[in-house]
Amino acid sequence: MTALTKAEMAERLYEELGLNKREAKEMVEAFFGEIRDALSHNEQVKLSGFGNFDLRDKKERPGRNPKTGEEIPISARRVVTFRPGQKLKQKVEAYAGTQS
C-alpha cells in the first residue's frame, strides 16, 4: 500500500465535494501551509477529533559525534510534537495488520 499524499487528498475534494481541480489542490496546500505557519510562529494547533501539534523548547544538551566520539553540544531548539486525540487513537488501536 502506497502512502497517502496531497494529490489523493485533493482528488477526494474534487470527487466528493465538487471543488474544481485547482481549488482542491489549493485547499490541501492551504491546509498544511497554514498549520505550518502557525507552528513556526510558536502557536499550538488543535484539530479536534484528530490531534494536537504542540511545540516544545529543548535546552542545550551534551551530544557526541557517533563516528569520531568527539563531544559536541546539541544546541537549544524548538521542536514539534504530535499528540493524537482520543478519537484517532481509538480508530488506530484496532488495526491488526502489518504496515506497508
Binding site: 487528498m9 484528530f50 480508530k91 488506530v92 506497508s100
Partner: peptide, 12 residues
C-alpha cells in the same frame, strides 16, 4: 481522509 488512512494502517 487522514484518520481513515491511518486506521487502515496506511502511512501519510
Amino acid at each position: 481522509h487522514m484518520s481513515q488512512a491511518l486506521a487502515e494502517g496506511q502511512r501519510i
